Simulated scan of single mutants.
Amino acid sequence: MFVLVNLKTYPCDPVEVAQAAKEVSEESGVRIGVAAQDADLARVAETGVETWAQHVDPIEYGSNTGHTLAETVAEAGAEGTLINHSENRLKLADIDGSVQAAERADLETCVCANNPAQIGAVTALGPDSVAVEPPELIGGDVSVATGDPDIVTDAVEAAEAVDEDVEVYCGAGISTGDDVESAGELGATGVLLASGVAKADDPRAALEDLVEPLA
């Protein structure tokens, strides 16, 4: 099970979270990654935690002011990237371009989608993983694994019907070890979460609770 913590633009200390994630990962044996803002990628990567970008654009080197180049985040220490998060939606053609850009820079890719139908569509683009995240549950107190379990199992089936090699992650409302365990029981091989760790008074304690059922 992969636990990917998205720090979004929350007012947290990215290095503190990254250090906690690195330590908890080593102690538990659970794979944990941290998706940080571009400006924080190098500092987060220096902690040794698995570091992810929050987005890359479908561009190459050139005149692209204000865009995120895959090679740049890779050079900063990112090993993977989210694409098409619900808070930064892209057209299908641009998702395809972003996946190709990430692959060019040797970045692992996770493409987010709102529902099983979209999961099937983005799986066809050949990312390493996809994540189902109903927008109405993002940032809430109810996880998709418990509040809408059918959407997780349907997403897993939709992805498998297109490409069995693409991993399926579960996002939206994940905040406890029980949520992570439920996601796994529904067929997900990873979880995406944000506020449960980034907004926690004690990020390490929050991470320890998340991985406790997996250790």
Rank of each mutant, 00 (worst) to 15 (best):
G190I: 01
Q37W: 00
N84A: 04
L207Y: 10
E75Y: 11
V166G: 01
E26C: 10
V142Q: 15
A39I: 15
R43V: 10
P58N: 08
P134Y: 06
G120A: 07
S28G: 11
V180D: 13
G29N: 11
E75R: 15
E87A: 09
T72Q: 15
E160M: 07
E79T: 01
T81P: 02
Y10R: 10
P116N: 08
G97H: 10
V166H: 01
K8P: 04
A102D: 05
V122K: 04
N115L: 04
E157R: 15
I174A: 00
M1C: 05
E157F: 11
L193N: 06
A124E: 12
C12S: 13
A105T: 02
L186V: 06
P135G: 06
A205C: 08
I95F: 03
E164I: 05
W52M: 03
D13E: 05
T123W: 10
E16T: 13
L82A: 02
G140T: 13
S98I: 04
D40M: 03
G196N: 08
D141C: 06
W52H: 08
G147A: 09
A200D: 01
A121V: 00
G97I: 06
T51Q: 10
E23G: 06
Q118Y: 07
N84I: 05
T51H: 05
S143L: 00
G77D: 06
E164F: 07
V142W: 14
G77I: 04
Q19H: 14
V130K: 07
H67M: 12
V49L: 04
T123M: 07
C112T: 00
V130F: 07
E27F: 01
N64Y: 15
P116R: 06
E185S: 14
D38Y: 13
R104Q: 12
M1W: 12
A45K: 08
A18N: 07
V142F: 14
E71H: 15
T81R: 00
G139V: 01
G80L: 07
